[in-house]
């Protein structure tokens, strides 16, 4: 690991100011001289591996703004402070009651210890676990822009089939983000140009020809909160995660589903897919395919086909198309059958 200067800003504006001081114009947050740390479960790992090499590590855990650590339930929905830990949010009674899909997505992620450490904002910003990205001896366009992609024709069983490019097929492995994108969450951020709101769907960027550009955030920008709008029918929602073993593994495929049903007919569906895409993935085509339809195995199957219409498989991950479809079908039917 490269040495770094450790600092503990105590308010958001100071944190932003320090980060700005070390940032250059073309800095991506993941390549900046100064980087933020909260739980450390992703960044500390990547610093040990030499993937992340900040000169300054800005510990956000001493920030004094109380809202950063709070979950606020309002008429308008629910607001998660950025420093709330995953475990706390997963166990929060109102989160479980109003948004089962959020609670599930948190509970099925990582391990008890990691959920106690990882902040919600850090979790949504977690970087891919692509084996070729993790180890610095491989070529990787995300880690070293322009160096090539060893995963493309390598062992790519884990890799994405949606949102891929010729430069990168690394999967976005997070779970929580799938629930957030399905529910139209909004991210609050503060940076050098003040505070702003980012629709969750705009937070992450598909790799295209710049896979090292992972988010819309500027190098000095800090996520302060994540807001989920009130969706009364989101009580009929769940997160289904399919993996090789029962727990403590990344999704091979997952689905976040929320349904507004009129009897068995779909008024509105919200669908996001995990484990199969390069970024949190809202399956808009599948949602449209279901609208106004009676939800059964056939219509669910048609929606799943629509969701994967643009999929691009590689040698070892072609099965994810079929698995992803089946995961969505199962998730839709299980959501339909929920006792709400």
């Amino acid at each position: 690991m490269r040495p770094f200067v450790y600092e503990q800003p105590t308010d958001i504006s100071t944190a932003v100011a320090i980060a700005s001081r070390f940032a250059t114009d073309d800095d991506q947050p993941t390549r900046a001289n100064a980087q933020f740390i909260a739980g450390g479960t992703n960044l500390a790992d990547y610093m040990k591996l030499g993937v992340a090499e900040p000169n300054h590590l800005l510990d956000l855990n001493q920030l004094k703004e109380a809202a950063l650590r709070q979950i606020q339930v309002t008429d308008g929905g629910i607001r998660f402070g950025a420093l709330v830990r995953m475990g706390e949010a997963a166990d929060h009674a109102e989160v479980n009651r109003r948004y089962p899909v959020i609670a599930d997505s948190l509970r099925l992620a990582a391990s008890g210890q990691i959920r106690n450490m990882a902040s919600l904002a850090g979790n949504v910003l977690q970087r891919t676990r692509c084996e070729y990205f993790r180890e610095t001896s491989w070529q990787c366009n995300k880690r070293v822009p322009g160096s090539g992609c060893a995963a493309m024709d390598g062992f790519n069983r884990q890799h994405a089939v949606l949102g891929v490019s010729d430069a990168c097929i690394a999967t976005y492995h997070g779970d929580f983000a799938q629930a957030l994108i399905a529910l139209d969450a909004v991210v609050h951020a503060e940076g050098g140009h003040g505070a702003r709101k980012i629709p969750f769907a705009k937070l992450h960027r598909q790799p295209r020809d710049t896979p090292h550009v992972e988010t819309d955030l500027a190098a000095e920008e800090i996520i302060t909160a994540i807001e989920v709008p009130a969706i009364p029918w989101a009580r009929r929602s769940l997160y289904l995660k399919i993996r090789d073993r029962e727990s403590y593994a990344f999704a091979l495929a997952s689905a976040a589903v929320a349904l507004d049903l009129d009897g068995e007919t779909v008024r509105e569906a919200r669908i996001a897919l995990g484990g199969v895409a390069t970024v949190p993935w809202r399956a808009g085509a599948a949602e449209e395919a279901l609208q106004g339809k009676k939800l059964d195995e056939a219509s669910a199957g048609a929606a799943a086909d629509a969701a994967f219409a643009g999929a691009h498989p590689r040698q070892h991950n072609a099965f994810k198309i079929e698995l992803g479809k089946r995961t969505l079908v199962r998730a839709l039917l299980e959501t339909r059958d929920m006792k709400v």
Binding site: E131, Y132, R134, G154, R245, E246, S247, Y248, F250
Partner: peptide, 25 residues
Amino acid sequence: TEVDRRYARYVNRDLQDYLVPVNAD
């Protein structure tokens, strides 16, 4: 243990990707 056949190198060299049973299994 997965081998990248082009380079004769191991790919999943850790407990994140080399899966062994966990308690829930």
